[in-house]
Computed example of a mutant assay.
Amino acid sequence: MPEPGVPIKGALCFCHGYGGTCTFFFEGIAKQFAASGYGVYAMDFPGFGLSEGLHGYIPNFDDLVDDVIEQYTEIKARPEVRELPRFIMGQSMGGAIALKVHLKEPSDWDGVILVAPMCKIADEMLPSTTTLKVLNLLSKVTPKAKLFPYKDLNEFIFREPGKRKLAVYNVISYDDKTRLKTGMELLSATQDIESQLQKVSAPLLILHGAEDKVTDPLVSQFLYEKASSKDKTLKIYEEGYHGIMEGEPDDRIFAVHNDIISWLDFRCLLIN
Rank of each mutant, 00 (worst) to 15 (best):
D123Y: 04
A122H: 15
E124R: 13
I157A: 12
T129G: 00
P127E: 05
M125E: 14
L126M: 15
L135C: 09
V112S: 04
S107M: 09
A96W: 07
K104F: 01
N154A: 14
L135W: 08
V112A: 06
L103W: 09
A122C: 14
V141L: 15
N136S: 12
I121F: 06
W109T: 02
K146R: 15
P149G: 11
A116V: 04
G95R: 03
H102L: 10
I97C: 04
A98H: 05
E124V: 11
H102I: 03
I97Y: 02
V134D: 01
N154G: 02
V115F: 00
G111Q: 03
T130I: 14
A96L: 04
D152V: 07
C119N: 13
M125R: 12
P127Y: 06
P149W: 05
I157W: 09
M125L: 15
F148I: 04
S128D: 13
V115R: 01
K146M: 12
L126A: 07
I121M: 14
Y150W: 13
R159A: 11
L137P: 00
P149R: 03
F148A: 06
D152T: 12
E124P: 00
I97A: 06
V101I: 13
V134S: 11
E105W: 04
S139H: 09
A116E: 05
C119D: 00
K120G: 07
M118D: 06
E105F: 00
D123L: 11
A96N: 10
L153K: 04
L153A: 09
K100V: 04
P143Y: 10
E105T: 14
A96F: 06
S107A: 11
I97K: 05
I97E: 03
D110H: 15
K146A: 13
L114P: 06
L99I: 15
K100P: 06
M118E: 07
T142G: 00
Y150L: 08
I121C: 04
S139P: 10
F156A: 12
D108L: 10
L114N: 02
A98V: 07
K100Y: 04
